[in-house]
Simulated scan of single mutants.
Amino acid sequence: MANVTRYDPLDDFFRGFLVRPVEIGQGDMPSVKIDVKEQEKAYVVHAELPGINKEDIHVNIDGSMVSISAERKQEKEVKEGERVLRTERYFGKVSRSFQLGQEIDDNKARAKFNDGVLELTLPKKATTQARRLAID
């Protein structure tokens, strides 16, 4: 015979609630937020990279794969008589990779960075039509 056990979901909810530390406001490392638009001959990508210098942004294109990486460096300037009470801003590396539907002509690709937004214009490579090979 099987044992019957009574289950109360509130027991699981409150079990350990007061024992475990609760972290409020501590999330994962931030990611690069992007918008991708397709035009007839190109893709246009907008990536949010606030607080990052354009020298610290790297974009790699490999076929139809696009990778964006950036690093925000921490300022270690603490004046005499001053102490840091709390730091919530993220410092470190972030990256994002995504694949587009068609290969990119990396020789014609352009990038602009203005007001924390990276704009990539990624022209599509001309596709070659498949052809049937005649057998001799």
Rank of each mutant, 00 (worst) to 15 (best):
D136S: 10
V4W: 14
E55G: 06
E55I: 11
D56G: 14
I68M: 05
N3G: 15
K124D: 09
A130N: 15
I135V: 08
R131I: 14
M1Y: 15
F91H: 07
V84L: 14
A70W: 00
L10I: 12
E71G: 14
N114D: 10
V94W: 05
M65D: 09
R131T: 14
V59Y: 00
Y7K: 00
K37R: 15
T5A: 10
V84W: 09
V44F: 12
R132V: 15
S97F: 13
D106S: 10
D28F: 12
L133S: 12
P21H: 07
R110M: 11
R20S: 04
K112M: 09
A134H: 14
E82K: 10
G51I: 09
D56I: 14
K124Y: 08
A126N: 05
L120I: 12
N60R: 09
G116Y: 00
T128W: 06
N60G: 11
P123S: 09
E71N: 15
R96E: 10
Y43C: 01
F113G: 08
P21I: 06
E119R: 10
G92P: 10
E77H: 05
V59C: 03
Q74C: 08
G101S: 08
G16E: 04
F17I: 11
A42E: 14
D105Y: 08
I135M: 08
Q39K: 11
A134F: 15
V117W: 02
H46G: 06
Y7W: 05
Q74F: 04
V36D: 01
E48T: 06
A130D: 15
D115Q: 08
R72S: 10
V59G: 05
Q26A: 15
K112R: 10
E77N: 11
H58G: 15
E38L: 13
E38C: 13
G27D: 00
V117E: 02
F14N: 00
E55F: 12
A42M: 13
N3Q: 12
S67A: 13
A2T: 10
H58M: 15
L133G: 10
E71I: 15
D12F: 10
G63P: 03
E55T: 11
L100I: 11
K125C: 05
S64G: 11
G27Y: 00
G116W: 00
D105G: 09
P9V: 08
F98H: 13
K41C: 07
E75W: 05
V66Q: 02
E119T: 15
N3V: 11
T121F: 03
L118H: 02
V36N: 04
K54Y: 12
V66E: 01
G101F: 00
N3T: 15
L18E: 02
D12I: 03
G51F: 01
I34L: 14
G92I: 05
E103S: 13
P123I: 02
M29L: 02
R83V: 15
A109E: 02
A126K: 07
E80G: 07
P9K: 07
F14Y: 09
D115V: 03
G116S: 00
M29N: 02
I104T: 09
D136T: 03
I24H: 07
T121R: 12
P123R: 04
I52G: 03
E75Y: 08
T127Y: 07
E48P: 01
Y43G: 01
E119C: 09
F91A: 05
A70F: 01
K124R: 12
H46I: 06
E40H: 00
R110G: 08
N107G: 04
T121W: 01
G101K: 08
S95V: 10
V22L: 13
E88A: 01
K37T: 14
E88I: 03
Q102N: 12
